[in-house]
Every structure is written in C-alpha cells, then in structure tokens.
Design a protein around this nucleic acid. Structure first.
Lengths: 334, 334
DNA sequence: ATGAAAGCGCTAACAG
DNA sequence: CTGTTAGCGCTTTCAT
C-alpha cells in the first residue's frame, strides 16, 4: 500500500479510499492510484483490515462429516447464505469427536470468526462461554447445546418424525416393529426412540426392549443385531431405522442375511432421512424425510440476523419432517 | 494482552512467550501469567498473529459443489490433511460458474490463505498470476488450469478409465455402445469421450455421432436423449455414462421410459464414478471408480509439501481408476 | 479533496 | 530469564 501511494504520489489514506471505493476522491487522482495498483499488482490484505475494523466477515461451520450427504447438503446451504452476506466460511468435520469439535471451534474463535454454526458432537459446551461473552455469536443446528448454554438452536422434529414413521407401519398392520437407531448418546437418536415409543403406545402396542438395537451404524454391528432380531421366536415384521446411514447399512445387512424385502413381500422398512436412490431400489424405500438444506439455510439466516444486530431471547426452532411412502413401508405383515 | 501483562506484572513479550509455550520462562512467572489469562478470559488473536508472522495457517478449497458426493469426499480428505498440518480450510462451491470461482479464489487470496486447492470451473486463470507471483501456492485438482499457468495438478486417468469401461462393454459383445457425457466444455467430459472413441477404435467399431449425447445431467435432457437413442433404427445395446450424476439420472430416465435393465436383461450400462447403492440396485451397476478422497488427499499433501518449502517443477499427477464389475455392464446384447 | 498520525494485537530482533 | 522497541498493513480520527 505504501508502494502504491508512493508510485501514485498520494498519501496512504487516499489509496485506502480508492481501494474501498469511498467517495470523495478526485477522479483523476483515483485513476492514478488505480494505475499504480494495477502496475504493482497490489491486493488489499484483508487480515490487516480485519485487525483494524473488528469484523472478519467469516463464519465457522462445525459438522460431523462433510462427506456425509446430510451434512454436505447442510454445508452447501450455509455456504450460499454466507456468500450472500459477504462472508466466507471455515468448514470443519468433528467426526463425532467432542474433543475435535472443541478444537475446531476454538481455532475458529481464535481466528475471530464473526459467528459459528455448530452441529455438536459432545454435550459440554462450557468452553464456549467465554467466547460468547467476547461477542461471538453461535447457532446450534441439528442438535442442541449442552446444559447451561442459552443459545439459538435449530432442530428437526425428530420425535414427531419417528412417531409418524412408526405409526405408518402400525397402520399397515404391523405389531412387531423393531427400532434400529444410532448411538443413544446422540440427541437425535434418543428423540427418535422416544417418537417410536410414543407411536407404539398410541397404537396399543407393547414396548419390547428386545426389538430395539442402538449403536454406531457399522455393517458388522447391524448385521449381528438383525440376525438376532430375525432369530427371535416372535421376530419383527417391520423395521424403523433411525437415520440415513443406518437405513442403507441395514439394507446391506439384510441382503447379506438373505432377508431383504422384495416388491413382492418381506420385512417392511421405514427409514428416518431420505437418501439418494431410495426411490430406485426395489421395493423403493419409504422414508421420513428431513430437509438438511433447509436446516442449514435456517441456521445461517438466523446467525446473520444476529450478526446484523437482531436481539431478543435465544430462538429454538423445530423444522418439520415429511413422510414419503414409496413401497417398503407399505408391505403388509405376512 | 496488555491487560494480562499488567495483571501479571510482566511485559507484553512474556505473555506472548507463555501463550506460545516458548521455553525460557520462569515457571513461577509463567504460572502467574496463566492465572491472569484465565482470570481475564484472554484468547490470542490469531489475526494479529498472522499479520506479524506472515503465514495464516489456512488454505482455500474451491470445488464445484460440496453437496455432490464426489466433492464432499474430496473435501473431507483435504480437511483431514489440512488439520494434520495445523491448518484450517475455507471451503467454497463455485457451482460450475467461472465467475464465482474467481471471486472465491480472490476472496481467499485477500485473506492471505497460504495455499489453494482448486477444482476449476472456468479455463482462464490469468487472474491467478499475480497471486502466484505474490507467493500463494495453488494445486489444481480433477481438472487442469487454463493455458499459460504452470502449476501443480492432480488429475484422474479419465481417458484410460473411459477406455476400460467401453472396452468392457465391447468385450461382452456389444457393437452399438452409446456415450452419455457431461457438457463437453468440461475437461473431464472431453477426456472421457476420447477414451470412449479410443476403445471403439481398438475394438474395430465405427464411431457413430448419433450414439453420442453430451450436456448437463438434467433429467429432461437425458430423458429426451435416451428416447432418441432408443428410437434409432439400430439402437444401442449398451450405454457408457460419463459421470456419477449422469449415471443416476440416466437410470431414472430409463425407468421413466420403461427401458431400465433388469437382472434378466436389457440395455447394458457402465458408468464413470462409483456411487452409493450402485451395488444394491438390480442389476447392480458396473462402474469405473475414481477415488475422490485419494484425489483430495494427494492434492492437499502436494500443497503442504510445497508450503513447507519443496521446490521443483510443477507436478502433474494422474490417479488410476478401477473397473468394478457388478452386473449391469455384463449383460449380453439381445 | 487530501493527508498525518495513531493504533488494532501481536511477534521479531535485540537488549539487559 | 525478562523487557523494549519497532512494525506487520490497514483504517480511524482529526487536520488541512
């Protein structure tokens, strides 16, 4: 910048004015400065600018895993909103590891991002308190913050969705409905289990712990759980799966167990989360769909509203789910 | 930092030393400083640190769309390598828009990222020349930089992959093989078309322009193209699809045209790019698989080697593809 | 319309 | 082992 000023024969401040397109600069002078800028290949250093101005025009996004379609859709929506607000986004995947979540968040804070969108892996966010006090805004998405943090949150209607999916199976005559969920330590997994139980109760069906299996959606584990379920004296005739990953993995496990449903019949399935090609399988898979892009957009818009000064108590939004009947959830019991 | 120094009764530099865990500080003094830090809730401002040190410990990643599984896998790999090198990553989706690509790249440069990984949308990267001259390192991934830019590049063996896929179909007796590709303006689409043509030539089959359809993978367009192909007096008995999106969309279009293959027979298909559930469709889909995570990892590792001082001429890497036979590519001609 | 000076928060380079 | 000084590149404030 100094060089540009010297080359154009003006003061630093004038260069600054031209670069930032402030008005009140003689057009001839401005042109001279622009020439010098072009000649020297000068680019404004936004880092220094930030240091002086306080706002970084960047936000941090911490999710579980960008490679998961659910989160990649969410990311894209956040990105778009951020760009629309002139902001860049740091993305980080926590991999469901609360330590890594914390490291990422703190690294973003040290970079003085204006705000954060967090899909938390852990449930202790005490480490955020000083940052929030220092003025960094945060919005939690998909899962709430740990206790003691009063912060904007956008969740999906997990319980209602699971209730609707389970009720759908019950309405098609199933009385033995198994629940395959994610690790119960995960907020959404637990809420969905609750919805499942509520739907059973509404349908007058007894809750049977033997029909419930929860854990990380790994092939081997699901294979073992499904083998156990199918070997039960009174095996399930329907399956409610607690998230996209679990649905797909369960389908694979059923295939391996030679128990995958066909269009003609077999175990009925409803899955939480829509997924690519669910409509092309046979039978096509009935799902309770969330809208991850909507989740990301809503969270980001809320964040930017806060950043532009909107005050008021922490918001807690719930996004609806939608049951999409495609075939696998409408198979009758044998 | 001033406040901390005052509270601990030491000089600024001592606080700096403690914060950065430099050695050569009396343990008692250090402890006093740490107490003051905790008391005041002090956090180092990395922006200021960067300004002074020159390195931002951040890189920029520009891809086509994070929401696309190919790029989301690539992103995750880049993220992991970056984190392993103590660096954060700005992510941006260009949406196949060269203007937006440019804006993102320049915004990242203004933030003085240490390096860039770019999947280019456009083919004019003149705007990068001053940035490269200013010392920002860039690695191009998946597609090469425009003319005149001598820069590290990691590509996949598009031609070889398409050749292998097409040859596979020919080896199974097909003599009328159609090619459904992406927009021919896209580098990879063109390379894959080349591979297709080479394989035809090797198999002694004539190239027939009527069997080739290229464009953005939208449902309507593919539907129309497929309808035209199927109505040909001498219609194709096999299909080679030029990328993951196209494969899936073509499958849907075939379904709508009532021409989707079954395990029993029908039009044979080999697709470029593997995709989730390809193995669960019926017939399962034979693909030429790339490894997007490997692509991301390789590009990121190359970038960080450059950032840590490795010199030498621009590298041009080609990553191999792998044919995975699953059924749809082994269907015989009628 | 333009400029001079101060300082954002930090660290490099030297003292002591 | 600790402190002082200067300055990274920019914007803000107050002159001119």
């Amino acid at each position: 910048m100094n060089d540009v000023a010297a080359a154009a024969g003006v003061a630093l401040k004038t260069v600054s004015r031209v670069v930032n397109e402030e008005r009140g600069v003689n057009e001839a002078t401005a042109e001279r400065v622009r020439q010098a800028i072009a000649l020297l290949g000068y680019r404004r250093n936004d880092g220094a600018r930030v240091l002086r101005r306080g706002r970084t025009a960047s936000i941090g996004l911490v999710i579980e895993d960008v490679a998961d379609p659910f989160y990649s859709l969410l990311s894209r929506a956040v990105e778009d909103v951020a760009l629309g607000n002139g902001s860049l986004v740091f993305t980080g995947s926590s991999g469901e590891d609360s330590l890594r979540e914390r490291e990422l968040v703190l690294a973003f804070c040290a970079r003085r991002v204006d705000g954060l969108i967090i899909v938390p892996a852990g449930d202790d966010h005490g480490y955020l308190v000083p940052e929030l006090a220092a003025g960094i805004r945060a919005v939690f998405a998909d899962r709430p913050a740990g206790p003691g943090l009063d912060v904007d949150t956008v969740l999906c209607d997990n319980t209602g969705g699971a209730r609707a999916g389970t009720a759908h199976l019950a309405a098609h005559g199933h009385r033995r409905i198994a629940f395959l969920g994610d690790n119960p330590a995960i907020f959404t997994a637990e809420e969905r289990l609750r919805g499942y139980r509520e739907a059973l109760a509404s349908a007058g069906l007894a809750y049977d712990a033997a029909l419930v299996a929860m854990g990380t959606p790994q092939q081997e584990r699901l294979h073992a759980d499904l083998a156990r379920l199918l070997a039960l004296p009174d095996p399930p005739t329907a399956l409610f799966t607690g998230n996209g990953r679990t649905t797909v993995t369960a389908l694979r496990a059923l295939e391996a167990l030679d128990a995958r449903p066909t269009a003609a019949g077999g175990i009925a399935i409803v899955g939480f989360d829509d997924f690519e090609l669910a409509d092309m399988l046979s039978p096509a898979v009935t799902v309770v769909a969330q809208d991850p892009a909507n989740l990301g957009r809503t969270a980001a818009e809320l964040l930017f509203r806060r950043l532009s000064g909107e005050t008021g108590p922490a918001e807690r939004l719930r996004l609806p789910t939608r049951l999409i009947a495609r075939g696998s959830g409408e198979l009758p019991p044998p």
